[in-house]
Amino acid sequence: MSALPDPSPEIADYAHPERLVTTAWLAEHLGEEGLVVVESDEDVLLYDTGHIPGSVRIDWHLDLNDPVTRDYVDGERFAELMGQNGIGRDTTVVLYGDRSNWWAAYALWVFTLFGHPDVRLLNGGRAAWVAEGRPMTREAPRREPAEYPVVQRDDSRVRAFKEDVLAHLGRPLVDVRSPGEYSGELLHMPDYPQEGAVRGGHIPGAANVPWGRAAAEDGRFRPRDELEELYLDEAGLSPDDEVVAYCRIGERSSHTWFVLTHLLGFPHVRNYDGSWTEWGNAVRVPVARGTDPGTVG
């Protein structure tokens, strides 16, 4: 049993409004059967300082990544994680988090690898909920475990590997990192720890659209016309394009993947989660430096 879509005009213009809910919709439906709210943040402890009543925490690092191999968890582990959080295959999952849903979008993308049918983002994330003075609690939720089937991860549709990107060169790529990382002046995000890339720059031909430009000051997504201006007019993408988005480890580009796929309705967008921490260390892959996208070969 899943919840009905949110019919709010705030999200009605997007290509797939059923992938978003508003804070008002969530407040009204909180606690309903068939709905589980999941918080996913950059800071693993933020949930403990207060969360939406009844919500559970899923952490990108501790829960969604394999602890040994650089990869996501497998179908067995994902089923276990869902089950212990009271999520069934037919549950409506609403994800929200800090930093304009940056990490929540990453979690949503991982849910998509497992084909979870109904997974949505809370427009505006944690900041919008808090700014409206809606309830938060430190109380741990009590959720009955659920049965979740073991579904094999499908990496073929929304995920790109390095080999896929090499084969894709010459077609549209979006680099969603900061301009300094794109040009090669910086090897990592401003204000963030060095996470080890031995070369700076970008994949030749990639347009630079920093991920945060898709979000407004209040953390909500920008309206559809503004997003079209950004990705269609400015970055030159077209909805029929096959697009690959990347960043440093694939989290910021999940946010852009969500925007292109669900808000603008591009059907063929993949996220390259190896991103610059793989490409910037790989031997003999082409790299472009400077502010110009550059060309291949």
Binding site: V44, L45, T49
Partner: peptide, 9 residues
């Protein structure tokens, strides 16, 4: 900052 409780911890 309060939004970074891990770091505060």
């Amino acid at each position: 900052p309060a939004e970074a409780p891990t770091t505060r911890g």
